[in-house]
């Protein structure tokens, strides 16, 4: 009996692995799902999400969310921190790739009609995921506190703020005042690293659970 077998047996004695594993390991995946690369898009988005969590945690170790320090700390990440430039650039590219993958995934689902009964609610959760992901992008954009992030956020909060009735409240909640400043930066930071990660974890859990229960719509 090899060492791995012993570990397996130890765990099996305690957690009944022999009953738990087969439904996961042997769960059938339709053949065309494996052969057609269009079915990779959702998984691609999820992989990007994992990469974003990991690179994001490392960025958060050096980033300082105040108008005086934000830009300098990003500059330090880009020039002084070992591999900092790579980690930030991977975070940047994974974010853009994730949004593109989510959009393409949605287009595939639409044209294959995979949102039909019984999967209606999973489509709705998917739209909320799209909203969450774009809000992630929007909130992360301000954090480097450079000219591009400041003025892009100016446009974004301006558009959201000119919505009828709710616009004023949304812009006040987002900016924490009448203009983009220190309050806005800490709010966007909190949204980007606390609120949205929790939201997306819940939504992704629902999304995957529903796929697991209902199976992949494999009809072309």
């Amino acid at each position: 009996m090899s060492f791995l077998d012993k570990i397996y047996k130890w765990l099996d004695d305690r957690f009944k692995l022999r009953d738990l594993l087969p439904p996961i390991v042997k769960h059938p995946a339709p053949e065309d799902v494996i052969s057609n690369p269009l079915y990779c898009l959702g998984g691609t988005a999820f992989l990007c999400f994992i990469i974003l969590v990991i690179t994001g945690i490392f960025l958060a170790m050096y980033y300082k969310p105040t108008p005086g320090e934000a830009y300098k700390s990003v500059q330090t990440i880009m020039t002084a921190v070992p591999m900092g430039s790579l980690v930030r650039s991977v975070h940047h590219w994974a974010a853009n790739t994730m949004i593109a993958a989510v959009m393409l995934h949605m287009i595939r689902i639409y044209f294959m009609g995979a949102y039909k009964k019984p999967r209606e609610l999973n489509w709705v959760v998917g739209i909320f995921l799209l909203l969450t992901v774009t809000t992630f992008g929007f909130s992360g954009y301000l954090l480097p506190w450079d000219q591009l992030s400041f003025w892009a956020t100016k446009i974004g909060t301006g558009i959201a703020g000119s919505m009828p009735i709710i616009g004023g409240y949304i812009s006040l909640i987002l900016m924490g005042g009448n203009d983009i400043g220190a309050e806005t930066l800490t709010r966007f930071f909190a949204i980007h690293v606390l609120i949205l990660p929790m939201a997306i974890a819940v939504l992704l859990g629902m999304h995957f659970l529903m796929v697991r229960i209902q199976g992949i719509s494999g009809r072309l």
């Binding site: 990007c48 990469i51 108008p67 830009y71 990003v74 500059q75 880009m78 430039s85 790579l86 930030r88 650039s89 991977v90 975070h91 940047h92 590219w93 994974a94 790739t97 480097p144 506190w145 450079d146 000219q147 591009l148 992030s149 400041f150 203009d179 983009i180």
Partner: peptide, 18 residues
Amino acid sequence: LILLASYYPASLLKPADP
């Protein structure tokens, strides 16, 4: 992603100026 990140690093322009 690593290739893209190495050839086209994330930009950082001048500091924000209202």
